[in-house]
Amino acid sequence: MTQTHVSTIVNGDAVEFLCETDETLLDVLRDRLTLTGSKEGCGSGDCGACSILLDNRLVCSCLVLGVEAQDREIETIEGMASGDELHPLQRKFIEHAALQCGICTPGFLIAAKALLAQNPDPTETEVRYWLAGNLCRCTGYDKIITAVIDAAAEMRGNV
């Protein structure tokens, strides 16, 4: 078992790691880089709890291999707030009680951020379809949708 050396950028920092060739990027993030904010709910790309941005594209990190991170830029939930200032989405999730247990929350926040980056003023239906790859079993999605729409409004300056 020869491990592969990988150089990448995670949340703005240059990072190097060794990993098995069959190891998922999610396992690398969690087990080798101690970034446990990304969660494994299914390991098959169905639940979205491991959502990250890879070169600004929304992906399930359980479906990406660690070795594929070479020379790429990764953003995880740990990189979403700037210092002690929460991202508007993070703040709105708390304000609207858009989380109950919180296990799906990191994935939803990353996915919502990706949505607002390309569509700053989504309709309720657009939000629902964009987030259809993220499973939440607690909330029934109602307050999540409200939080995303409210955060979008704030980010557009309409408050």
């Binding site: 087990d31 446990t36 904010g37 707030a81 929460l86 929350t105």
Partner: peptide, 23 residues
């Protein structure tokens, strides 16, 4: 009333420790 939950920040920043998060 509807105050903010005390564990909200941990849960939106990914720092909350769930079952699989400890080593």
């Amino acid at each position: 009333t509807r105050p903010l939950r005390p564990d909200g920040v941990e849960k939106v920043t990914g720092s909350a420790k769930f079952g699989a998060d400890l080593t």
